[in-house]
Write a protein that binds this DNA or RNA. Sequence first.
DNA 1: GTCTATAACCGGATAGAC
DNA 2: GTCTATCCGGTTATAGAC
Lengths: 205, 205
Amino acid sequence: MVKKKTNTEQRIVDAAKEVFILKGHDGARMQEIADTASINKALLHYYFRSKDKLFERVFHEVFSEAFSSIAEVIGRANTIEELIEYFVSYYVAMLKSKPYLPNFILHELNRNPFMVVDLIKDSGMDKSFLIQLLVKESNRKDIRDFNPVHIMVNILSLSIFPFVAAPIIKGFIFDGNKVEFDNFIDERTQHITSFINAAIFKNQS
Amino acid sequence: MVKKKTNTEQRIVDAAKEVFILKGHDGARMQEIADTASINKALLHYYFRSKDKLFERVFHEVFSEAFSSIAEVIGRANTIEELIEYFVSYYVAMLKSKPYLPNFILHELNRNPFMVVDLIKDSGMDKSFLIQLLVKESNRKDIRDFNPVHIMVNILSLSIFPFVAAPIIKGFIFDGNKVEFDNFIDERTQHITSFINAAIFKNQS
DNA sequence: GTCTATAACCGGATAGAC
DNA sequence: GTCTATCCGGTTATAGAC
């Protein structure tokens, strides 16, 4: 049986998550984390030896929040239609509830690319299954001739990028109007799936 | 006539650009910038009063490298086909030569969202022209019924995101093979334009 | 303008009492 | 486990000679 984590330890991790997400690894201050957790700096070092160790813990937790169930979602798909639908609806819904995720991960991707890529490889996401499915489906008569890798990148781009660029879309396109932006996000799953389907299927009017 | 900038000043800005892009605002060190420019720290403060002032100068320069000609490119478009072609080919080519740009700007977008959005507004990019063109074109009989804002965001997403996520695509999809990744980028302009065209135009086989 | 030396400060980490 | 007090290295910024 897993030993129950102390209350303080979780409080620290939660506070660290908040500050690291807001300020990034380099911008975050141990003092601010301590203040947010309502404890003192020394205690941070008692639970986690260093800032880097604390960050590592936070990153792993945040990362698995994002990727723990994606492999299973993909695995259920038998056709490209299902893959698109499952993938997009899962990603957009998940990012709607955790909009900070893409920037947090991309930030670390720049500081430490190999570590992040290794984490993705270990996440259970089955690349060969994905490629196999896409290659098989690309032979269908009703589907246009596209490179499966581009299709995969397109699905990711259309789902994730609006969250990465959210302040620009909100500020520039919607003049800071939060309601209009939220509407836009709510329409997004439906729009992306029909947009991609229109692109890859032949003979639709 | 504009006074010619001293050699040293430009050397500092170039060095700062390099370091800030690589390490980000918070991760960059004035010492490293000085070393890169082959001068000493004191001289940095002689030319620019503080780290923040130097960063501001660098950011403005990098930003205008990215956006100075985009407004003119968009302005030449009369139809949605032209808009897509001009926009995608300009962006992908520009990002191919400056792949660091998206992350640098997105990083600052998190630190300072309003400043970045204000810069975009002042960049001469004519939002109403863009919307007007898209709305007009969306009435065409040969075009599917799509929300113009989503189309605009799609064009941006498909063009920019692969550069943002480059280490993941390179590392995870292409197993670190740089040549395959470069090929992928070279195919990208062509792929995106035909993908978007297939999505928005009716009755294509 | 450019340098060396140093001030002033900040932030991560530790010592040691309770 | 939790606290206060403090250390110590590193970083921005300045003083002052040349």
